[in-house]
Design a protein around this nucleic acid. Sequence first.
DNA 1: ACTACCACACTACCATACAAGTGTGGTAGG
DNA 2: CCTACCACACTTGTATGGTAGTGTGGTAGT
Lengths: 227, 227
Amino acid sequence: MDFTLKPIQPVSTRDAVYDALRALILQLELPPGTAISEKDISLKFNVSRTPVRESFVRLAQEGLLEVYPQRGSYVSLIDMNLVEEARFMREQLEVAVVRLACAEFPAERLTELERNLSQQRASIEAHDYRLMFELDEAFHRTIFEGCNKTNTWQVLGSINAHLNRSRMLRLAADQQWDHLFEQHLGIVEAIRIHDEQHAAELMTAHMHLTIEDQSLLRAKYPDYFKS
Amino acid sequence: MDFTLKPIQPVSTRDAVYDALRALILQLELPPGTAISEKDISLKFNVSRTPVRESFVRLAQEGLLEVYPQRGSYVSLIDMNLVEEARFMREQLEVAVVRLACAEFPAERLTELERNLSQQRASIEAHDYRLMFELDEAFHRTIFEGCNKTNTWQVLGSINAHLNRSRMLRLAADQQWDHLFEQHLGIVEAIRIHDEQHAAELMTAHMHLTIEDQSLLRAKYPDYFKS
DNA sequence: ACTACCACACTACCATACAAGTGTGGTAGG
DNA sequence: CCTACCACACTTGTATGGTAGTGTGGTAGT
């Protein structure tokens, strides 16, 4: 007997286009300000304008795309006000969740965090910053999952689209990965020994570290920023 | 010389349909579980399927609509896990913002809060709960605006769609508006005298009050809830 | 040389037709 | 009476044509 569920949909064209465009925007391969038209994209992907259009609707709702009727669509510029508020929201939620984690955290999630940490160490030594970026995401997601706050993490995912775009600009830069890694170590230790106060302090500092040097970024990529 | 900007768009059909459907869903005039088809809506609004469809995409992204390809679309059921996490997120952000407000808050916003409070008092005496609901929204929004956290409030707006739907169920019920009003009074007073600790405690309690008695709701409207 | 104007290429918006999958009710066969 | 099956009436997904508004570059007129 085969209980495998047949995929509800192999993959809808709309979702495929959406995923592709979103990835291109977040990885800055479509830099802020880039003009993109439904027609262009539909030709590049060899699909009709309909699924492209619907992808545009979703991207516009997330604030990643600005659509001006009858004039054109543009990858949205990075809005520093928005980025700062995204950082603010993330800080509040991350701190609150890590406090919960100090009170109660499943053992298997803790080992998952430790496994992640060892991978982080390896990727830093290998100077693989792209991988380190992904591990950092996974690290924080695991904390949320361990506290049964999966939906919260998903909401953060869309909120942080802008935040991550500016973080991506610093990927090549020095980005003090060593420092971030030390903080990760401390956070996991605090969770293990249920030191809520210390965990909260570490997480607060951690959330501030991910966004400094914005004026430098602005100077380096002036065209990518708004106002 | 006339510097008035002509409206970029009188109002796109898509946005009109989206706004209408969203309001219908949030006010439970389209109850959770209701089947709605693109065709039906397009006939009712006398527009083609295209703008309706794009509205569906947006509503589905917000989690207010479930779309099953080739089978139908349904107003999403209320997911209590989601509601609780929405409440959690809102609590963290509201508390953080009210702390900011205690440190610094513009005078004109404070008078706006006081004006709002007197309107609340009047609407409670008039038993106009619908108006009270709106005043409550405006009250919290004003606090966010006074702290330059407008974007944060907007994000909360989409997060709280689910939360508000379950709150709406209680509108006719007793919904201890008196108690909520007392807390509002206390919060404004705490902001005025910069009593951060007290404000945070009041807001925490306030955020918990808005969601109690869920089991009662579930018993009363079992078909509206998920799992 | 400069300005006003207009045709044209381009955009997103909307309507419509067709494609493909799903569930159901009726019917034919056992 | 029961079951298997199939046609049909739905659904959403995709493609395409026409509409209206916008910006630009070239041209005619001064």
